[in-house]
Design a protein around this nucleic acid. Structure first.
Length: 385
DNA sequence: ATTGGTGC
DNA sequence: CTTTTGGC
DNA sequence: AAAAGC
């Protein structure tokens, strides 16, 4: 197993200059570990707003008209712009609890609760965790440790393209009429990602239930399935919108770790220096909504996380609607009349989401003559429910 | 059966 | 001043 | 922590 060195943010002063985005990400993460949800969100927004700018901020004056930046964030910015470091950020980076929780949560299958549990047991390293006879790792965490080096390594665009071919072949063998769409960060145009996300749907009635299980079987037969957690659909149009407190959508989906052969990647694998295996493990997610929900699923899974959050808040507070991965609902219509998206019987639309920006994104896009959200049309269902 | 993990 | 922040 | 609501 490849253990990480503490590399992401070097606490050694003078060497690594901190970017403003990184500084806010550290503050956000620290707030998250301390269960301060408000400050966490505020720092995430600050980071997101700076990321959305076409230029790098070089002076405090340039941030005068930007939203989501207040007293605290501007004080940090002043420090970082002045000398490339922040006292508060460095204090966090040198904090043992922060370092340990950051390390533990970097393992696939380990979230804040589990990381905290291990920390309270006095564990401080992977060696500590793996040597502790009282710790039982679930299947996901076992895979997380087993493939740690590979799945913490960034996935390149070329690797994502290659995986598209692999998935496309497996899908086509099951349902030739199926639609496969790349989502997540790579759909947003990113050069690197931590995984590769796809949405797969079939117009063939009755096929949707067996589609994902059959695709998974195909990958298994190829011998490239290193890990699979399959979640069957719990989607039910009669129960929309869902009032239950649930983070995830109800579509059939699977969280995979696949073996990707170097020979299938144009320009080779994104791998470590002396890695002669000729393959690497990659995290892949497949989501399979019913065809008529394709657009909403695509919108929801294209991200970014901050964009999804802001978009839903925008739908609620200014449009008086509820948006989720399953649909768009008008709160002002009786009995939660529900709105359908184009593409029910025909072509799913091309979503032009442009995430990675802050709360002002929609307005900014409009000013530039782009309309990232207008693809979701207000076409009422017959009968109106 | 519940918690915590998975995701954008 | 209090409330809201993905009624994920 | 920042913004919105009262």
């Amino acid at each position: 197993m490849n253990l990480p060195y503490y590399s992401s943010f070097s606490p050694s002063p003078g060497l690594a200059f901190l970017s403003l985005e990184d500084a806010f990400e550290v503050l956000a993460e620290s707030s998250e570990f301390r269960e301060m949800e408000g400050p966490c969100l505020a720092f995430r927004r600050a980071a997101s707003v700076l990321k959305s700018l076409p230029w790098a901020v070089q002076s405090l004056g340039a941030t005068r008209d930007l939203p989501c930046l207040g007293e605290h964030t501007k004080a940090v910015m002043e420090e970082v712009l002045q000398c490339g470091r922040s006292f508060e950020v460095e204090k966090i980076l040198s904090d043992e609890r922060y370092q340990t929780l950051k390390l533990f949560t970097s393992v696939f299958g380990v979230g804040p609760k589990t990381a905290e549990k291990w920390y309270r047991r006095g564990l401080r390293s992977f060696t500590d965790v793996l040597a502790d006879r009282g710790i039982h790792l679930n299947r996901m965490q076992q895979s997380g440790f087993l493939h740690y080096g590979d799945i913490t390594r960034a996935v390149s665009k070329a690797e994502a393209r290659s995986l598209r071919n692999v998935i496309d072949e497996a899908v086509r063998a099951v349902s030739p009429a199926a639609t496969l769409a790349l989502t997540g960060g790579f759909r947003r145009g990113k050069e690197f990602g931590h995984d590769v996300d796809f949405i797969v749907t079939t117009p063939e009635p009755g096929r949707e239930k067996s589609l994902l299980p059959n695709v998974i079987n195909g990958l298994k037969k190829q011998g490239i399935l290193l890990f699979c957690e399959y979640q069957a659909s719990t989607f039910d149009t009669a129960k929309l919108p869902s009032y239950r407190f649930e983070a995830m959508d109800h579509f059939a989906k699977c969280f995979l770790i696949l073996r990707l052969e170097a020979s299938q990647v144009e320009g080779g694998l994104h791998c470590a220096e002396g890695d002669g295996r000729g393959w690497r493990a990659v995290r892949v997610d497949l989501v399979s909504p019913p065809m008529d929900r394709f657009a909403f699923a695509l919108l929801g899974w294209t991200g970014s996380r901050q964009f999804e959050r802001d978009l839903r808040r925008f739908a609620r507070v200014t449009q008086r609607m509820i948006l989720d991965n399953h649909g768009l609902y008008d709160k002002t219509k009786a009995a939660s009349a529900h709105f359908q998206c184009i593409g029910q019987s025909g072509e799913p639309f091309e979503l032009r989401a442009e995430p990675e920006s802050g709360v002002r994104r929609i307005g900014a896009a409009d000013r530039q003559g782009r309309h990232p959200v207008t693809a979701v049309s207000r076409q009422a269902l017959p009968g109106g429910q």
